[in-house]
Structure formats: C-alpha cells, structure tokens
Design a protein around this nucleic acid. Sequence first.
DNA 1: ATGGCTACGATCCGTAGA
Length: 254
Amino acid sequence: MKLATWNVNSLKVRLPHLVDWLAQARPDIVCLQELKLEDPKFPRSELEAAGYQCAFHGQKTYNGVAILSRTPLLEVSTGIPGFQDEQKRVIAATAGELRVISVYCPNGQAVGSDKYEYKLRWFAALKSYLAAELARCPRLVVAGDFNVAPDDRDVHDPKAWEGQVHVSEPERAAWRALLAVGLQDSFRLFEQPEKIYSWWDYRMMGFRRNAGLRIDHVLVDAESARRCTASSVDKAPRKLERPSDHAPVVAEFS
DNA sequence: ATGGCTACGATCCGTAGA
C-alpha cells in the first residue's frame, strides 16, 4: 500500500502533472493541499477516470485539501472539530482500516506576526484533534504540508534560517507535541540520504541549488510505523515545466 | 542590497506563499 502527500499549489494548473504522476507512481491514497479552487471546480471526473475516488474541501484562491483513494472513502469529515476556522485546511476519511487526514498547516508568515500566532493556535487545536482521532481510530495516518522543518537536517542552510518561521523553537515544539500524541515521522523511520527536502523556493534557482526545506510529512501511528517499509521524496515532478514548489512525499506499507 | 518566483484576482498592482 502506497500513500502520498503533495502540495500541488493550484490543482487547476497542476492537474496534468498530477494525472501523469498518478499513472507513473500508482499510489493507493493521495493527500493533496493548496487546491486553490472551490468545490464545484474540483476536477472530479478527470481524477475518477484516473481511478480515484475523491473527498475534497476547497475554497477560492487559498488553501483547500483533498484525499484521493483507489478504494472507497468513508466517514468524510472536514476541519478541526470545535476549532472555528474560515480557512479550509483539513479533511479526513476512512479507507479500509486506515483513518487518513490531509492537512495544510498555516505558513505563519513571520515569527511574532498575527499569522504566526494563528499557526501556533492552529497546531494546538490539531494536536487535540489527533489525540481524539487516535483514541477512536488506532490506525491513523496524518499527511500534508506542515510548514515546519522538524530539525536542522531538514534545512538546506540552518544558519540562514535560524529562528525564522518554519524552524523557530515554538513551531518545532508544536511539531513534537503532535508526535507526542502517538505518531511518528515516517521519513525518519529509515536511514536517509542527507539534504532531502520537499519544498524549494521558486526564486534564486532554489531547486537547482537544492536550497530547500523538508516541511511535507507523513505521520503514522505505532502499528502503521511497524508496517511502514519505505518513505521518500519523489523529486521528479519538481523537475517539470511549471512545477509546484513542493514535491510529493511517499510512504509504503506492508 | 531583505530583492529574487508563481498563482490569483484584481486590473497592468497587491496579497500570499515559504
């Protein structure tokens, strides 16, 4: 079983890349972020033709999340229960025995800004939600764009980024609090090459210089961690013309 | 020198992303 997460940065623009990638990588479940389109504009028929059922929660211009699956998606829920939020950043569904949550965590803009405070509040709410979901559904995968680089290995230039948004200590503490409810970063279950990232700035030839951050993650419960056989970043779609600034992250399970 | 791309929705610039 292969599960992926990909921040597509506009599903409208990236649909051809997504359809091609689905055909090549053949994931069973895909979590998508930054759809940037309203639900009536979701390309359901194209993705069904590619072999996927779809659950989506979109809005115009910003945010928007989805889950694609080769098997039926049941018990779809959107948002974080009890957390009022205009921004469409969370969708959950059950595929077989697995509860899957696709998340697009806030960017935070700059340390100390209103958006940064919102990001920390949002992470606290997500943590409570994940604890409750884990109690209810022991097989849980949370995949998406977390907008946090967990440690300096996940940052191309830790000195330049020191204290900045995505790596600041309060954000990393919020990340560790998510793991503390009983989840693991699937990528770090395995020995990995150095300098693996999932996002590269469009500017300054970020991708060519491998000036990136690892901010897209697949979190898994203990049993899913035991069954996880691989976790990696697929850089191929980032090399195409007019790419998303993020690459897909893939985890495989026995 | 604090910029630099990209997407979007508004128009021919501002907001946001990371």
